[in-house]
Design a protein around this nucleic acid. Sequence first.
DNA 1: TGAGGGACAGACCGGTCTGTACCGTTGTAA
DNA 2: TTACAACGGTACAGACCGGTCTGTCCCTCA
Lengths: 203, 203
Amino acid sequence: MTPQAGSVAASGPRPGTASPDAGQRILDAAYELFSRRGIRDVGISELIDRAGVAKATFYRHYRSKDDVVLAFLSQRDELWTVNQIIAGARSRGTTPTQQLLAIFDVFGDWFIRDDFEACSFINVLLEMGPGHPLGQASIDYLARIRDHVQALAEEAGLARPEEFARSWHILMKGSIVSATEGDTHAAARAQEMAGWLIEHHQR
Amino acid sequence: MTPQAGSVAASGPRPGTASPDAGQRILDAAYELFSRRGIRDVGISELIDRAGVAKATFYRHYRSKDDVVLAFLSQRDELWTVNQIIAGARSRGTTPTQQLLAIFDVFGDWFIRDDFEACSFINVLLEMGPGHPLGQASIDYLARIRDHVQALAEEAGLARPEEFARSWHILMKGSIVSATEGDTHAAARAQEMAGWLIEHHQR
DNA sequence: TGAGGGACAGACCGGTCTGTACCGTTGTAA
DNA sequence: TTACAACGGTACAGACCGGTCTGTCCCTCA
């Protein structure tokens, strides 16, 4: 908020005329706003306000609003998909099968958070439509999630891992939408069906 | 909600002024535009253009944009949920269990249509958020879909029909999102899991 | 000491949005 | 025939949008 906040505070990564990295503040603000409120509901003015950044500074770092949304989606993939969901699930189980089922344990904890914001990739896809570049990018990131599931299925030695991952993904997405509707037990319901899916794919 | 239908009943095409009730033309245009493009992407100007109606006429029939969206959601419930999905599924099966599974047959035909527009209730819910009045209305209409499933489950004599319906609904919503991503076989995948769900709820 | 440059502030532009007001026209009822 | 109500057309108000631009401040480095 404060304009002068930490002018040289950063641990000096950039030589020369470097500064507190306004670009990072923009990305942080974009993550907060876009993940909770969607794309169209957040304007550039509010974004630069939150980041404590001038408009010209924003447009020096990003070519357009779509550009910063793409950067947000990439950040979301890293912080949420990989660091939260995949890493969280892997740490909760020892065998690949346990790790797969643990995805819905992570979901269960996530669904009951008061700042639960659903899946940004689904949100953006449905908000912008599959024809829009941002919708297409969301589809790509959703495919990456499915790839993680497929990799775990292969580690578990399950049959037809690609088909398995697509069915598994239906459970993930369906439970997220149900959680958005207010069903706090959606993760447990999906996990039950996920168990049957594993059984039917065991050789 | 209903556009008041002030003039004479629609006993025939009017010779002079408005041919087929301006209020109905507005609702028809709203259905076409909102179901295919969402809410925020469609402005009032485009809506009245499509309906062939003056702006003042629109605001004589509907108090606001939200008002006409509510009317659209109601229409969507009638034309899509009831007439297409539920009636279609009931006509395809003889027993309640067959009728339940036939939902995903209807979905399968629906997903491959080139004008596939996904589920408006999910779209509006994620577009506006669960806190917005339109999001809340969407949640209510989604609950009505679940009620239809629950009724079929009760007819089929399945155990714990409410829990069954919530799990079933996860499969419906998840497959719709997958279809939006481009998976044309999402309905078959969901149907397979739906079969297992029925098995586990048979007394 | 002074030049250079990144950051902040904010005016400004064209366009779009929802919603209102006013117009002349036309069919229907009295 | 006249009064009325609904209609299409359109200008307008006020807000907001994404994006451009100018000006000022301050830090860094030569």
